[in-house]
Amino acid sequence: MIQEPALPPGWEMKYTSEGVRYFVDHNTRTTTFKDPRPGFESGTKQGSPGAYDR
């Protein structure tokens, strides 16, 4: 089984109701579709995929 590298501290991976993966940075309280791990580009969309909830 291939294991992906861990997200940076304070980051979480979530999915929209449509199943699109996005990332929550709890450090800055922002969201992005761009994977924060080096070498992982998950898309070019920018903006908030939804309300920030902790």
Rank of each mutant, 00 (worst) to 15 (best):
T31Y: 01
Y22P: 00
E41S: 07
K45W: 09
T16V: 01
M13W: 06
V20M: 10
N27M: 06
T16G: 03
Q3Y: 14
N27D: 03
S17K: 11
F40W: 09
W11Y: 05
K34Q: 09
K14A: 14
E18N: 06
T30D: 05
S48N: 11
N27I: 04
R21A: 10
Y15F: 09
V20H: 09
S17H: 15
P36W: 00
A51W: 06
G50D: 12
G47K: 14
R37Y: 03
E18C: 07
T44L: 11
R29N: 05
A51M: 14
F40M: 13
P36N: 00
T32G: 01
F33E: 03
T30F: 05
D25Y: 01
R37S: 04
K45H: 06
M13I: 13
D35F: 03
N27V: 05
T28C: 04
H26K: 05
P36F: 00
V24H: 03
P5M: 15
W11S: 01
L7I: 05
Y15H: 04
E12S: 10
G19I: 00
L7E: 01
R29G: 06
A6M: 09
K14D: 12
S42W: 09
K14C: 05
F33M: 07
H26E: 03
W11E: 02
P9K: 15
H26T: 04
V20Y: 04
G43Y: 09
T44A: 11
P9Y: 07
Y15R: 12
D35K: 02
G39T: 15
G39M: 09
F33R: 04
G47L: 10
A51C: 13
P9V: 14
A51K: 13
P38N: 09
Y15V: 11
Q46W: 07
F40I: 09
Q46Y: 08
S17M: 10
G19T: 02
T32N: 01
P38K: 11
I2P: 02
P38S: 12
P38A: 15
G10E: 07
K34L: 07
G47V: 13
H26Y: 03
P38W: 07
L7W: 02
T32F: 02
D25G: 00
Q3T: 15
F40Y: 06
W11N: 01
P49F: 08
W11D: 02
F40C: 10
D25R: 00
P38L: 11
I2S: 08
P9L: 12
P8F: 04
P5G: 15
G43N: 13
T31L: 02
K14R: 11
E41W: 08
F40G: 14
R54Y: 10
W11T: 02
F33Y: 12
P36G: 00
F33I: 02
T31Q: 03
T32M: 01
R29E: 07
G39L: 13
F33S: 03
G39E: 11
P38E: 13
R54T: 13
F23W: 07
K45Y: 10
P49T: 11
I2L: 06
S48M: 12
R54A: 05
R37T: 09
G47Q: 12
Q46D: 13
A51F: 09
P36A: 00
E12M: 08
T44I: 10
Y15M: 06
T28S: 08
K14W: 12
E18S: 06
R37I: 06
Y15C: 11
T44D: 11
P5D: 15
T30M: 09
E18F: 05
S42G: 12
V20T: 12
P36Q: 00
Q46T: 09
G10T: 02
T16Y: 01
P36T: 00
L7Y: 10
L7H: 01
K34W: 12
R54S: 06
D35M: 05
A51Y: 09
G43F: 08
G50S: 14
P9G: 11
G43R: 09
P36C: 00
E41N: 08
H26M: 03
D35V: 03
P8L: 05
P5Y: 14
G19L: 04
V20C: 08
F40N: 05
D25I: 00
S42T: 14
P5E: 15
S17T: 11
Y15I: 10
S17N: 14
R54C: 03
V20Q: 12
F23M: 01
P8Y: 02
G39Q: 14
H26C: 03
R54M: 09
G39W: 12
P49L: 10
P9T: 13
G43I: 09
I2C: 07
A51Q: 14
K14T: 08
Q3N: 15
Y52E: 14
R21I: 11
H26Q: 04
G19P: 00
N27C: 06
I2W: 04
E18M: 03
M13V: 14
F33T: 07
E12A: 07
F40V: 13
G10V: 01
S42K: 10
N27R: 07
E41M: 10
Q46F: 07
Y22M: 03
P49S: 11
T31I: 01
A6K: 13
T16E: 01
E18G: 08
A6I: 12
Y52A: 12
S48V: 11
W11C: 02
E18V: 06
A6V: 13
P49A: 04
I2R: 08
S48E: 14
S17I: 06
K45V: 07
Q3E: 15
Y52C: 13
D53W: 04
P38T: 05
P5N: 15
P38D: 13
D25E: 03
K14P: 00
E12L: 03
P8D: 04
K34R: 09
G50P: 11
T44C: 13
W11V: 06
P8T: 02
D53N: 08
T44Y: 08
K14V: 10
S48G: 12
M13F: 09
T44R: 08
S48A: 11
L7A: 03
S42Y: 09
E4L: 06
Q3M: 14
W11P: 01
P8I: 02
E4Q: 06
D35Q: 04
A6Y: 13
T44M: 09
D25V: 00
E12R: 02
K14Q: 12
D35T: 02
V20I: 08
F33W: 08
P36L: 00
S17Y: 01
T44N: 05
S17Q: 08
G10M: 08
G10R: 07
Y52T: 14
E12F: 01
E18K: 08
I2H: 06
T32Q: 04
M1G: 04
K34M: 15
S48R: 13
P38I: 15
T44K: 15
D25N: 07
P8W: 01
D35P: 04
T16I: 02
Y15N: 08
D35S: 03
P49H: 14
Q3D: 15
M13A: 13
R54K: 12
T31K: 03
E18P: 02
S17V: 05
T30S: 11
T30N: 09
R29F: 06
G10F: 07
K45I: 07
F23H: 00
P49G: 12
R29S: 05
N27Y: 03
D53F: 05
P36R: 00
T16F: 00
D35G: 03
S48P: 12
K45Q: 12
H26R: 04
E41K: 12
F33A: 03
T28V: 02
G47C: 12
P9R: 11
F33H: 04
E4H: 09
E4Y: 13
T31G: 01
R54F: 15
Q46L: 10
P38M: 12
R37V: 04
L7T: 03
T32S: 08
T32L: 00
G39N: 08
P5R: 15
Y22S: 01
D53L: 07
K34P: 00
G47S: 11
K34N: 03
